[in-house]
Design a protein around this nucleic acid. Structure first.
Length: 130
DNA sequence: GCATTGACGAAGG
DNA sequence: CCCTTCGCCAATG
């Protein structure tokens, strides 16, 4: 154990479809919940961390159901690989995603996160699957 | 049950 | 550099 690592909690069923335990969606939510306030990650990074590098789209789809989760999922901290708020239209209001980020000291300009590289948080480097 | 649609991303032209 | 295609796969028509 060379560096600091966190554990991904295996949460009880919280899937919209009432699926069992550790489904892909649930794992996505678990990872998203570990994103530190003020940091952001990408759909692809989460997918890669979960061993499904080519399923970034599914991560995006999973986020679509984030709002209905009992335990909150900070969906505003997940953006596309260019640091753009590609999912903002899916929030309650077109400006909510940006507003939530603003509250976390993450600035956005023209739908793009300022200093994205600096804010980027890579689950593959910070998490360990328990 | 086939076709289309994506909060994606890499590759090819 | 921009546009298209393709892989991925759940949801929707």
């Amino acid at each position: 154990m060379a560096k600091t690592k966190h554990i991904i909690p295996k949460l009880p069923s919280i899937l919209p479809s009432g699926s069992r335990e550790t489904s892909f969606f649930e794992q996505v939510y678990a990872v998203a919940r570990q994103i530190p306030k003020g940091r952001v990650t990408t759909y692809g990074a989460i997918a890669a961390f979960l061993g499904a590098k080519k399923s970034a789209r599914m991560v995006g789809w999973a986020m679509n159901g984030a709002h209905s989760q009992i335990i909150p999922v900070p969906a505003q901290r997940v953006v596309n690989r260019n640091g753009m708020l590609s999912g903002k239209a899916n929030f309650a209001t077109p400006t909510l995603m940006e507003e939530l980020l603003a509250q976390e000291e993450v600035r956005v300009e023209k739908d793009a996160i300022i200093d994205f590289h600096q804010k980027f948080w890579d689950p593959a480097k910070e998490l360990t699957i328990d």
